[in-house]
């Protein structure tokens, strides 16, 4: 029966490679959240000398394109150096999978974010972050693009939920255009904290909601 996925996607979906939890990984990253839909965890084992990925595993709570991307990305990244792994792009992965439906881009990007996040996690844990560039509002915005707006499955920035970002002496304040009692407020706060707090020069993160904000409709046309 024809499905909107290529044979390669379906093959990886049916028989995902390197799947499962890794005990005592050298690095780990979890992208997405159950409240938003898809979620990917990537685990790495890295050779300290060569900085090559000796083992990689992933877990997925998501659709076929999420599972397939997670699977193929572990195949591509295994044996590569951390630097090489960071260069892997969504385009490259999508091509190797024989293409993905455009509506499924988000689900597959998550797996790439997972790999990059795990590499960053390794570098941060092992003091490999060479240049400690100071955090900017641009960098914060970039990180917020990895926090999903669960109501539409697109990121906070793209759906205009970030009203303001203030950065002053290691203190970040993010104003979100949702009422504080919104069903996803707590979840979004947690995710924003997760993305911003690890930045080396950030001491305090505050997530503010807006009592005046209209509760947006679930369905937007």
């Amino acid at each position: 029966m024809p499905v909107p996925y290529s044979d390669i996607v379906m093959e990886h979906f049916r028989n995902p490679r390197n799947v499962g939890r890794m005990e005592n990984p050298d690095a780990k990253s979890v992208e997405g959240s159950p409240a938003c839909g898809d979620m990917v965890a990537v685990y790495l084992q890295v050779d300290e000398e060569t900085l090559r990925i000796t083992d990689i595993k992933f877990e997925s709570y998501g659709c076929a394109s999420n599972i397939a991307t997670g699977s193929i990305i572990t195949e591509i990244a295994k044996g590569k150096t951390l630097e090489e792994a960071k260069q892997i792009t969504w385009k490259q992965v999508s091509e190797q999978l024989g293409g993905l439906p455009s509506i499924k881009v988000h689900c597959s990007v998550l797996a790439i974010d997972g790999l990059r996040g795990a590499v960053e996690n390794y570098e941060e844990r092992h003091g490999l972050v060479k240049e400690r560039t100071p955090t900017t509002v641009e960098l914060i915005t970039k990180r917020l693009k990895r926090v999903m707006n669960p109501m539409v499955g697109l990121d906070l920035v793209r759906t205009n939920l970030v009203r303001e970002i203030e950065l002053k002496e290691g203190h970040v304040r993010v104003a979100i255009d949702l009422p504080p009692d919104h069903q996803f407020a707590a979840n979004i706060r947690e995710e924003v904290m997760d993305k911003i707090e690890p930045l080396w020069d950030i001491e305090r993160v505050e997530v503010e909601f807006n009592a005046e904000a209209m509760s947006p409709l679930t369905i937007i046309h």
Binding site: G37, I103, V152, I219
Partner: peptide
């Protein structure tokens, strides 16, 4: 009712309407 299945990538308005969350629709 998963968002991944819908053409709009939106979770079922019915599951959300009965007080369910994204995960339950998923």
């Amino acid at each position: 009712g998963s968002a991944c299945f819908s053409r709009s990538l939106e979770a079922s308005h019915v599951i959300l309407g009965i007080g369910g969350d994204h995960e339950r629709a998923h």
